[in-house]
Design a protein around this nucleic acid. Structure first.
Lengths: 220, 220, 220, 220
DNA sequence: CATGAATGAGCGTTCATTCAT
DNA sequence: AATGAATGAACGCTCATTCAT
């Protein structure tokens, strides 16, 4: 509808001219990479709002400002687009988890993880919403992919928890996988609940509350 | 809809209707009520697994063992079926919440709520999964309905929390709506995570863990 | 909706008691004949407004104040109901045509036919509308029936025209079938146009206009 | 819809679009326009034979030689397709009416109108049949549209009749709207009756008969 | 005589996908 | 690299018809 404005015709092109439409390192042209990025952004927003099945390829193309065929030029299928989206989004989260705990002692690392999760959710709220909706579904095509990715993110938490147990900062009889998984889920649901139902409240409050819970639980 | 009443002309007929599989108190025949129940059960299972949009009316009918048309004889539309399902399911939960806290002092009431929520989720796991997936979506037809119902369930928690604050059992500066909402969400996500990812683990563990968290947090 | 009132429960029944629900001359009970009549009336109105295909059996039953199953208890199928309707309606028209021309000399008979047609259309406007819409369709199930019935009605006109030609009141080279058919059609379209687009105008005007045309044409 | 324009960034591209089956003046490709035309033709034939409701979209697509989905790529809905058809068809008739009367004195103009109507009906017999069946229906979605279009066509007749009254060629007390409307309807019903029931008879006969009637009536 | 619950074929419509340009 | 016209399987929904009561 009002897409025209977002489809840059001016300066954007000059920049592209530098590369002469040529391919970048990974074998894809800059223009194409840009289109893919726009499609990702459109898809994540729409799927967060409506869910995967209720979001049409036409919707995604329209919000990205391209024609429907372009989606298929850039992605094998709607499902593949979504899987790549999941990979991309959870990969980013995992990376931030790793960056957050890097070199920190268990206690602080745990707090840093909570902070990183909230920070991530704040920045990519649509993706977080989408995760919350899809993570506990069964019988979907991309289930396999999602479980795998979830495992990678939670593994970072698990490593930290394990270190805490080893160092005596956390109770010795703690069920590590369960605790890690719960920690991840609690952060997700509390943060999304906050974004959806009380968007005006400062994130610091939420962070404090969550850190408080984690600390108290950990102390036992 | 309400035609039945306008057709009967004498009192004598009412007796027959009751005695021969005729209409029950709310104006629907026993057979029909049975069909509706079967459709509810089929729908909740399928939607929990695949989501609303990915579940077809044909699927629902097949699992309920009736013809497709029967769904539409009993429900206005797929959306309405789902809304009535939400109403039915959350209504049940709210009722169990009320029964759980009945007459208990704040502390014990809070524990009873956690127990009730877990018990409910264990019994109606598919519905819980479905709730987890739909509750934080935006832009869906039934959003309005869902928010309202969520409010009713959470209000029971809020009343308990408020009583706890009043009695000094809970910190005076507690943000009641946020705490209630978080409590609800945490229970949901932890329990569903457990059901989906570690179904073999006894529910008692999960209950203990959750009660532990709540108790510790409350003590502060 | 507001059907309740039309479904008589009071005095109507007392009357029926006289017959003790027994069968009348043609082998059908009075009650059943009454139901059939009500279904005819409902059907003719709805089909005139919306057409045959767009009118549902449910619609007809509802307007007649009976259950859907009752339609099938009284008529073999929707098509058969419509065919019987056509037979009934056109049979009535043909009878009135015959009554109108009875014993009259050609000239006056022609005028009487026009008057009879208009009178009929005024009385059974819905049926006339329905005829206008269906008469020139091809490829419909009841086409055969309709052509036959149309033929019977037009035959009365044709007999009169033929008599006029024989008596010298009408031109000898007149194409009798065409003239009869046109006369019938013109009356129908002019009268229905009047009913639909200028219902406030007195029928006398229309009658005068039509008679004027016919007379002038005949004089030639 | 109007996206094409917002996508092109330079003038250079426009040339290509025109030269290579691209978009034509009104923004639709030649191929698409061709498909639309084929769908119009298929729809008018089938609806004339069976009526709107009894004609399926699949039928229309099949007769046009395209897939069902193509109908919806080119028209918003079955109803919209029909409305555009009505607009197209009656627009054409109105244009021919205007061309027929252009510059002629009242008397001759009236005869020209009759000739134009018959000529049109002969050429587009299916459309005429369809008009005859739908024009006097009530309670249909496109009623509004149809009335409006009918009004435009009849207005041309009315202007001519009014001119005739002004010039003294027609009786001063003539009810112009009624006369115009009747003239239109009579032409329609007589011509369609002829096409359906006596297709072998030369059109000239029908034209003569109609012109005769009109002339005689007008002379009075 | 009448009902209303149930049926399933078939409808209008949507949408992921293909492909010539 | 991108497009948009076309496709057809599959969807939500309707409705003429059946039948146990």
């Amino acid at each position: 509808m009002t897409r025209a404005a977002t489809h840059r015709c001016g300066a954007g092109r000059a920049g592209r001219a530098v590369g002469r439409g040529g391919s970048v390192a990974d074998g894809r042209s800059r223009r194409r990479e840009d289109t893919r990025q726009r499609l990702f952004e459109a898809a994540v927003q729409l799927i967060a709002e409506q869910g995967f099945s209720a979001t049409t390829v036409e919707d995604i193309a329209a919000r990205a400002g391209v024609a429907k065929g372009t989606v298929y030029y850039n992605f094998e299928s709607k499902t593949v687009l979504f899987e790549e989206l999941l990979r991309h989004g959870i990969g980013l989260l995992t990376a931030e988890f790793r960056a957050a705990v890097d070199g920190l002692p268990p206690r602080e690392a745990l707090a840093a993880l909570v902070r990183a999760e909230l920070e991530y959710i704040r920045r990519y709220r649509a993706f977080a919403q989408l995760l919350l909706s899809e993570m506990w579904r069964t019988n979907r095509e991309w289930q396999q992919t999602l479980r795998l990715l979830r495992g990678e993110a939670i593994e970072v938490i698990a490593e930290t928890v394990r270190a805490g147990v080893a160092s005596g900062d956390l109770p010795a009889d703690l069920d590590v996988p369960t605790a890690s998984s719960a920690l991840f889920g609690v952060g997700l649901v509390v943060a999304v609940d906050w974004l959806v139902f009380q968007p005006d409240r400062p994130i610091a409050d939420v962070q404090d509350a969550l850190l408080g819970i984690v600390r108290r639980v950990a102390q036992t």
